[in-house]
Design a protein around this nucleic acid. Sequence first.
DNA 1: TCTAGGATATACT
DNA 2: GTATATCCTAGAA
Length: 213
Amino acid sequence: MIATPDRTPLPRDFFDRPVLEVAPDLLGRVLIRTTPDGPIELRLTEVEAYDGPNDPGSHAYRGRTNRNGVMFGPPGHVYVYFTYGMWHCANLVCGPEGRASAVLLRAGEITEGAALARRRRLSARNDKELAKGPARLATALGVDRALDGTDACAAGETPLRILTGASVPTHQVRSGPRTGVSGDGGVHPWRFWVANDPTVSPYRAHTPRRRRS
DNA sequence: TCTAGGATATACT
DNA sequence: GTATATCCTAGAA
């Protein structure tokens, strides 16, 4: 065995599987965000599955729009959406192509480039909060709509890539209801996280907003 | 420690 | 007009 970390991207076949197989298998894998100031690496600790046509909680449930077009494309690409008027969230598209299923990257541990991440996340009180939540993760990595459609499996230069390497053992994977999803979409235990990991975001049930005055 | 409310793009009614 | 795959701050407890 070779002791050096494997810098090879995951093969596209990895994502060309049902999203419920891919999601737990992503836990523990490492994302590399290449920025002009240097790389930021993140180890995934929490994800959520969204299964296009059968899933009322999915952005793709009501068909293709300008925003969600990447979900309908080939697996292994990054779908980035802008929400609540302020935040970005990153997903990895799963197969088969056209099914429009994806995994939302909910939280992770910054394993390299923490100084760069802190600069983008000034409100974080400690390093465990740098990517504790989907919008925080995107902010820490500097992910926005400009990265929508990025191929995370590309071998060459790419702003965002996911590496091969060990996922966490099955006995450390936990699952439960998805966060912040309303209606029938909240019943599925399609949120997956690493047991006892301090970077996993706290569960919040869906709370409807009150009307503005 | 907890809760309420604000910020406001995008899609849908 | 209303809801949302969210986060942050202020003020109460």
